[in-house]
């Protein structure tokens, strides 16, 4: 039986999803790996005056302008200290490049659809609107972020100002 045929027969619940996992302030988050263009080290950013505080500035990624978003600010966590290192997860949304700033990048995580659960009520309200659900892993929870919602909400905040 060919691979393709096998896949179509497989129940969606058992499909293996691949996520790019990362840590922010001790918690593990993830975005679908296909949404990630690349991951780069911390990059000096040009501050954009008057912009929302969660926008770190602008960075130059091989000649393209990337807008880094500080998730710690979005989620209301303690901000990075001066010398704290972080990583940029580069994501494309509506023709613009964004970078999600994370503390540390984990491996690509394979999870089965069956471990998916909708967002638990206990998740902080500031965070919940950006979460599409969680995956139960063996030893911890993987919080899956809805990037579109996240980036759009920044847009809207800006628009409202």
């Amino acid at each position: 039986m060919s691979e393709a045929a096998h896949n179509t027969e497989t129940n969606a619940q058992e499909m293996v999803h691949q996520f790019c996992g990362f840590m922010i302030d001790g918690d593990m988050y993830a975005v679908p790996v296909l949404e990630v263009q690349e991951v780069i080290r911390a990059h000096p950013a040009t501050v954009v005056p008057l912009s929302d505080t969660c926008i770190r500035g602008l960075i130059n990624l091989r000649g393209q302008i990337v807008t880094p978003v500080n998730l710690r600010k979005v989620f209301g966590l303690t901000d990075y200290s001066e010398d704290q290192d972080y990583m940029n997860v580069i994501i494309k949304n509506n023709d613009s490049l964004y970078s999600i700033m994370v503390d540390e990048i984990c491996d690509v995580i394979d999870v089965e659809g069956s471990s998916f659960e909708s967002t638990p009520d206990t998740i902080d309200t500031r965070l919940r609107m950006y979460v599409s659900g969680v995956h139960k892993l063996e030893d911890r929870l993987l919080i899956v972020l809805d990037l579109k919602k996240l980036l759009n909400s920044i847009n809207n905040q800006e628009g409202a100002r």
């Binding site: 008057l50 912009s51 926008i55 302008i65 807008t67 613009s96 490049l97 920044i154 847009n155």
Partner: peptide, 14 residues
């Protein structure tokens, strides 16, 4: 000239 992402463009200053 490189375009800006919408949230920065909306500031209208740049």
């Amino acid at each position: 000239v490189k375009p800006l992402s919408p949230e920065i463009k909306d500031l209208q200053v740049f």
